[in-house]
């Protein structure tokens, strides 16, 4: 059975969300009725959102390359089972290669959510 792995287009879509929605989020926070957040904090959080989006785009590129490799490899007189297994193998390989950008994405997303202005009152907690 083939592993249900998301396609590269889904990753690209998610990267768009991070870049767009994340920045929207902080913009609304920063320009909201009680906007008293420092520019440095906003800039830092924006950088993290953009970094998360960039890493996810990187991961999408790696996965897309794997898909393209698979397209090239499955040509010729191969059985359907072979084609599926080759595709599966190459897609898994590309996901292995995409581990680093995905881990970085998760780290950046966690960081950016955690640092959202007025989301977690760090000064009260620390």
């Amino acid at each position: 059975m083939r592993a249900a792995l998301p396609a590269s287009s889904s990753l690209n879509f998610l990267a768009g969300i991070f870049a767009g929605a994340g920045i929207n989020l902080i913009t609304s926070v920063a320009t909201g009725p009680e906007a008293e957040v420092s520019s440095t904090k906003i800039a830092l959080d924006s950088v993290l959102w953009v970094a998360a989006a960039a890493c996810l785009t990187w991961a999408a590129q790696v996965v897309q390359r794997g898909e393209r490799d698979a397209d090239v490899e499955v040509q010729g007189r191969l059985t359907q089972e072979e084609k599926e297994e080759i595709r599966d193998h190459l897609e898994r390989r590309s996901w292995r290669r995409a581990r680093l950008p995905i881990i970085l994405t998760v780290v950046f997303v966690i960081g950016s959510v955690a640092l959202l202005p007025r989301f977690i009152p760090w000064s009260a907690l620390l």
């Binding site: 490899e73 010729g76 007189r77 191969l78 072979e82 297994e85 193998h89 390989r93």
Partner: peptide
């Protein structure tokens, strides 16, 4: 010719780790 094609199609390095292809 068919055998040549089959061998050539299954011999590329990208398929080295695919068990079914190697068996065939």
């Amino acid at each position: 010719r068919t055998l040549n094609d089959l061998i050539s199609d299954r011999s590329s390095p990208g398929k080295a780790g695919v068990a079914l292809v190697q068996t065939l």
